[in-house]
C-alpha cells in the first residue's frame, strides 16, 4: 500500500500548477470577474495540454490517465479558481466532437443548475427551459433548470477535488495573512484564537484530502459520497474561516477570499447538494 503520490503524479500536479499560474493568474482572474465571457484562448491552451482528454483512452486520442490523476488536476483547477464548465467538457470528451481538444465548450445541467450555459457551444442534456439567474459567484454564470438533472458520480468526484483545492488554498491564504498582519505589536498568528482557526482549516483540508484521493483510487460510490461531503465542508467552512482571519479585508471585493467562498457555495450546490450523498451513506449502513 503506497497511498502517497507517485513521482509521475507529483510531476503532473506541478506542471498543472505552473500552467495555471502562467495562464490564469491574478490578472486573468480579475478580468474574468468583470464579465461573464469565457477566455477561448485559455480553453484551447487547456485542451492542448490534455486537460479535457485526461481520462479518454489513448486509442481515442486521449491521455489515458485514471481518476487519481484527474483528481490531482482538478484540485489544482479548484485552487486556481479556474473558470468555465471544466467538468462538463471533460465528461463530453469522446462524445461531443471538439470537446477533448478544447475547440468545443460543453455545458451540462447538474442538479438544479447549469454553469456557463450562454458561453457554451453545446448543452447537455436538454436545457431549453433554463432560466438565467444573477449568479452569486462573479466568476460562474448560472442558469436554473426546472427538473433536477441526473447526477454523474464522476462529476461529483471531480467537484470534490476542486473543493479540496479550495480548502488547501484558503488554508494557505489564512496562514499567510496570520503570519504577516500585525496587531497589538505582534503577528495575529501568535494569538491562539487565530492559531486554532488556522489549525481547523488544515485538519478539515487534510481529512478531505484522504477521502478524495481514496475515492479516486477505489471509485466506489460510498467513497465518492464521503469525499463529496468532507470536501464541501472543508471548502465552505474553510473559506468562511479564512475570511474571518482576514478581518475587514476579507469582506472587501478587492480580496480574493470571497471568490473562494462563493465558488465553494456554487460547487456545494452541484448535484442538488449533499443530501443525496448523506442518504446514500445512510443506506450503505444497513446494506
Amino acid at each position: 500500500m503506497r497511498f502517497q503520490l507517485t513521482e509521475d503524479q507529483t510531476a503532473l500536479r506541478r506542471a498543472t500548477r505552473d500552467l495555471l499560474e502562467r495562464r490564469f493568474g491574478e490578472r486573468e482572474r480579475r478580468a474574468a470577474a468583470g464579465g461573464g465571457s469565457l477566455d477561448r484562448a485559455l480553453w484551447r491552451t487547456l485542451g492542448d495540454a490534455g486537460f479535457f482528454a485526461l481520462c479518454l483512452p489513448e486509442r481515442d486520442g486521449g491521455v489515458g490517465l485514471g481518476f487519481p490523476e484527474a483528481v490531482l488536476v482538478f484540485e489544482e483547477a479548484g485552487r486556481a479558481l479556474l473558470t468555465g464548465p471544466l467538468i462538463a467538457t471533460l465528461r463530453a470528451a469522446g462524445e461531443v466532437p471538439g470537446a477533448a481538444s478544447g475547440e468545443t465548450v460543453v455545458a451540462a445541467a447538474d442538479g438544479w443548475t447549469v454553469e456557463w450555459l450562454a458561453a457554451a457551444d453545446v448543452a447537455r442534456p436538454d436545457t431549453a427551459d433554463a432560466v438565467a439567474v444573477r449568479s452569486v459567484d462573479p466568476l460562474t454564470p448560472l442558469h436554473r433548470v426546472a427538473r433536477a438533472a441526473r447526477v454523474d458520480p464522476v462529476a461529483v468526484l471531480l467537484t470534490a477535488a476542486e473543493q479540496l483545492g479550495t480548502a488547501v488554498r484558503v488554508c494557505e491564504l489564512a496562514v499567510q495573512h496570520a503570519r504577516t498582519r500585525e496587531q497589538f505589536g505582534r503577528p495575529i498568528g501568535a494569538f491562539q484564537a487565530v492559531q486554532h482557526l488556522c489549525a481547523g482549516l488544515l485538519v478539515r483540508a487534510e481529512t478531505a484530502r484522504a477521502a478524495v484521493y481514496a475515492a479516486a483510487v477505489t471509485g466506489a460510490r460510498t467513497d465518492i459520497a464521503a469525499a463529496r461531503l468532507l470536501a464541501d465542508e472543508a471548502a465552505v467552512d474553510g473559506a468562511r474561516d479564512c475570511l474571518q482571519v482576514h478581518g475587514g479585508m476579507g469582506f472587501t471585493w478587492e480580496s480574493e477570499v470571497h471568490l473562494h467562498l462563493k465558488r465553494a457555495w456554487v460547487r456545494a450546490g452541484r448535484g442538488g447538494g449533499g443530501a443525496a450523498a448523506e442518504e446514500a451513506l445512510a443506506a450503505a449502513l444497513t446494506a
Binding site: M1, R2, Q4, A210, Y213, A214, T222, D223, A282
Partner: peptide
C-alpha cells in the same frame, strides 16, 4: 438518517486518513 449518513462519511474519511498516515510512516 442523514446524521448517521454524515457520520459514515466522517469515519470512512478517518479510515482513509489512517491509511494515509500509515502509508506515510511506511515510506
Amino acid at each position: 438518517r442523514r446524521r448517521l449518513g454524515r457520520l459514515n462519511a466522517e469515519f470512512l474519511a478517518l479510515w482513509r486518513l489512517t491509511q494515509w498516515n500509515v502509508s506515510e510512516a511506511a515510506a
